[in-house]
Design a protein around this nucleic acid. Structure first.
Lengths: 198, 198
DNA sequence: GTCTATAGTAAGATAGAC
DNA sequence: GTCTATCTTACTATAGAC
């Protein structure tokens, strides 16, 4: 996910960095969804012109969204999934840290939307349904492994993992609808309780 | 919500019933969201031409969506909120029946989307945010009253009501992402457990 | 109340200069 | 690699006949 090809000389128009470009494009897709993210909007947000976006992503809007989905997957794997199964930390601490990452870095305390949900409407679900499903599975598998480390059975761990995702997604939707981050915050708290041994 | 004005004579082109018209329009908005619901699509789904839709809804797409949101509110009030506070039935039975209504009639076992969520993206949130907030509050207030009938404190009842909405919304999102109704079904079950006294 | 036809605008996408 | 300019299509919205 770094810039691999930088022309050695003649850097007049200066290539926009892939990573920050994808971040800007992702920001638009999260807010506006697929149908609402026109190339005009994507171009303005990225600082490039439409034709430049087509040069970077010859497949147009679909290719942009594919790249953003892959970029998000890499981020989630390294910031959520991998920390969740880091054997050098105890499960309680892992969960606590990851919930913090989810709340702050990923969703900005409930102010940011979920990319997968933003792409869940008819048109984009048809185009990216398979990737969305795999990304969601990645989350659930990671939390299932955590549940097993908590000594829950495989079945209980899988059930709790689904509940985690339901709580995150539902908390985001309700918070946005009400215009208050309180439901999302309460929901993150309740996820910790899901794994409390009692 | 019935047809109030039917021309006594000369019913050549036959007016399309308001109720079934709104149902067809709502179906499109739920699936495709605001940006994805073009007037061409809305016209085709409704069986009317674009110009006829403008005649019925002079404000265009925004007016259509406003009418659909009002229509949905009436449905939810009479099929969800009112039954939840029906004093002639005990709270346990009320909850059971309403969960059945939510699961089957409203969301078709998790196959149908939530209208409020479908309208939650940037553009439509800006236009209908106030109505979305009020509709969501209506749900929460109704479940809060139910919790009070269950003898929970006002605060606990309000907290449980939010959890109900979080579970419904989250269950729908996760079910759609995974392409399986199981998470939504499990989520509805867990709502009943929220009100189990023990 | 519904229709066909059309105006005006914004969309996705490409060609070619620098 | 980025840009301006342009093509074609789809969109919102309106005019006017039946």
């Amino acid at each position: 996910m770094q810039c691999q090809t930088q022309n050695s000389k003649s850097l007049r128009p200066k290539k926009v960095e892939e990573q920050e470009l994808l971040l800007k494009l992702m920001s638009v897709l999260r807010k506006k969804g697929y149908d609402g993210s026109s190339l005009n909007v994507l171009a303005e947000a990225s600082g490039l012109q439409k034709a430049s976006l087509y040069h970077r992503f010859p497949g147009g809007k679909k290719a942009i969204t594919d790249a953003v989905l892959d970029f998000a997957d890499v981020w989630v794997k390294s910031n959520i999934c991998d920390p969740l199964s880091d054997g050098s930390v105890n499960p309680e601490e892992r969960l606590k840290q990851v919930i913090k990452t989810i709340g702050i870095d990923l969703y900005d305390n409930g102010h940011e939307m979920c990319l997968l949900r933003a792409l869940s409407m008819d048109a984009s679900h048809g185009l990216f349904g398979h990737k969305i499903k795999n990304s969601m599975k990645m989350w659930i598998d990671a939390f299932t492994l955590l549940g097993i480390d908590f000594k829950f059975s495989k079945e209980i761990a899988a059930s709790k993992a689904v509940q985690v995702l339901v709580n995150i997604q539902g908390g985001l939707v309700v918070s946005e609808s009400l215009g208050s981050i309180a439901p999302f915050q309460a929901t993150l708290k309740s996820i910790e309780n899901l794994y409390k041994k009692s």
